[in-house]
Simulated scan of single mutants.
Amino acid sequence: MNQAAPFFTAHIEPDGMQCDAWPQQPLLQSMEQGGIDWPSSCRNGTCRTCIGQLVQGQVRYEIEWPGLSPEEKAEGCVLPCVAYPESDVVLQGSAI
């Protein structure tokens, strides 16, 4: 029987940091627990302070419409404060 991993790994580019990414909590929370300093503010998907680029991997959202346009979603933008990992992920910080 093939069981899902209890956690995934989040790799942060370009600095190469990584942390455990727990599927039951948002990526931002996992990154903070792993000692990664990532910009954030509202923590509910509206302010966009934490926006990043999902270079590799998959995430899911538990809210119907996180603060991303369809174009941003198509380009791989994610909001780590409300994004839950579904696999190992590679995340690149925003250049804002």
Score class of each variant (00 low, 15 high):
K73A: 06
V82W: 12
G34D: 12
Q18P: 00
A95F: 12
P80S: 02
W22D: 04
D20M: 05
P80Y: 03
T9R: 13
A21D: 03
G35P: 04
Q3W: 07
V89W: 15
G67F: 05
Q33T: 08
T46A: 13
E13Q: 15
D37F: 03
H11R: 15
P39V: 02
D88I: 00
Q53T: 09
L68F: 04
Q18W: 07
A21M: 01
M17Q: 15
N44R: 13
D20Y: 00
Q18K: 15
C19P: 09
P39K: 02
S87F: 00
V59D: 04
F7L: 12
Q92P: 10
G34F: 09
P23Q: 03
I63C: 11
W65Q: 11
L91W: 04
A10H: 10
E32C: 04
V78G: 02
V55R: 13
L91M: 12
Y61R: 01
A83Q: 02
T49K: 11
V59G: 03
L79A: 07
Q53K: 10
A95H: 15
R43S: 10
R43Y: 13
Q25G: 02
M31G: 00
S30H: 01
L27F: 10
E32H: 08
P85V: 01
Q33V: 08
W38P: 03
I51F: 07
G35K: 02
L27Y: 06
E32Q: 14
V90S: 15
